[in-house]
Computed example of a mutant assay.
Amino acid sequence: MNEAGVEVLLHKHVLVRAFELAGVDQSLAGQLDPAEKARAATIVDPPTRRDFIAGRAALRLMAAEVLDAAPHNLVSAYSCPDCGPHPLRSHGRPGYLVNGVTADLSISFSRSRGWALAAMVRAAEVPLGVDLQNIAQLAFDGFDDVALSPDEKLLLSRVAPEKRNAWRAAAWARKEALAKYSGLGLRTDPTLINAFPGKTEGVQGSEVDVRDVVSAEVGLPHGFAAAVAVRTRA
């Protein structure tokens, strides 16, 4: 499997790893559990199905490494804010059971244009969000009105024109990371999510730190923006 790179961020307790999905051995699909295989079978488009399988396999192997467990002993237990946690659910916030017990691991995962980014903290109770964006995908008319607050539009106006699409992608990655951190996803109006809060009070009354992930440091190619959000103290 091609692991592009590893970087420890945010007070040395968040592990962030990038994966090129085409480099993940598709034979690893055999290690997925029944819920993951069932979801893969519903994906009609072959490249999309391939990337789904690669992403789930890479995430499983990374989690097994962090937990010092055998990959086949992990059972996906994703938690959806609408549906709740369930050992057979294959959507929502990633999580695993190990030998029937919820793993003490907080996980966030994002895919974009053939690449994936995973973040993990060795404590299940720590809110965490990571997001990966392809810069070119956000270069469309109307983005600013649906995604940016008035203050963010003002910040954007001060950015050199040739750098604005990269700024937009970085801002959107931060918003998505914060939305995942909150557990609500984009049920919240994205214009109300402050992409550049510094350190502020998070949704659970704890301090949240959101930072850009430097592509070169985790092995992502040029053309991507990424961010991670995590609680820094109780």
Rank of each mutant, 00 (worst) to 15 (best):
I107P: 00
P94K: 08
D104M: 14
H91D: 07
S112A: 12
R113P: 12
G100Y: 01
H86I: 07
N99T: 10
A119T: 11
A116I: 01
R122M: 04
I107E: 01
A116F: 03
H91R: 00
M120R: 08
V121F: 06
W115K: 13
A118H: 12
I107F: 05
L105E: 06
A103I: 03
R113I: 07
W115V: 14
V98F: 01
P94A: 00
H86Y: 08
V101E: 15
V98D: 04
L117H: 11
A103V: 11
G114T: 06
R89T: 06
G92Y: 03
A119F: 02
S106K: 03
R111M: 14
F109G: 10
N99V: 10
D104T: 12
L117K: 03
A119M: 01
R113L: 07
R93P: 14
R113E: 00
V98G: 06
R122L: 06
L117E: 06
R93Y: 11
R111Y: 05
L117D: 00
V98A: 00
A116W: 02
S90P: 14
A118N: 11
V101P: 15
V101F: 02
L97T: 11
S108F: 02
A124E: 01
A103C: 10
V98E: 04
R111I: 13
G100M: 00
W115L: 07
R93F: 11
T102C: 13
T102I: 14
Y96L: 11
H91C: 07
S108R: 07
A116R: 06
A118Y: 07
Y96H: 13
R89L: 10
S112P: 02
S90F: 04
A123D: 15
M120I: 03
R111L: 06
S108M: 03
A103P: 05
V98S: 01
V101A: 14
W115A: 10
L88D: 15
D104C: 12
V98M: 00
M120N: 09
Y96D: 00
V98C: 11
M120G: 10
L88I: 14
L88E: 15
S110P: 02
S90D: 09
A116Y: 11
P94N: 11
T102F: 08
R122W: 04
G95Y: 05
L117N: 08
T102G: 13
S90C: 15
A124F: 04
V121D: 00
A124I: 14
L88S: 15
H91V: 09
D104E: 12
W115E: 03
A123G: 12
S108T: 04
L97M: 05
A119N: 02
G95V: 01
A118M: 12
G92C: 03
P94L: 01
W115H: 15
S110Q: 10
L105V: 05
A116G: 04
H86C: 00
P94M: 09
L105R: 04
R111G: 07
A119Y: 05
A116D: 04
L88G: 15
L105D: 01
R93H: 14
I107C: 00
D104W: 13
S110D: 06
R89P: 13
A118S: 09
P94V: 09
R113M: 07
V98R: 11
G114M: 03
V121H: 08
P94S: 01
R111D: 08
V98Q: 01
V121M: 10
V101R: 15
P87V: 01
S110Y: 05
V101T: 14
Y96M: 10
S112Q: 02
V121A: 01
G100P: 14
T102K: 14
W115R: 12
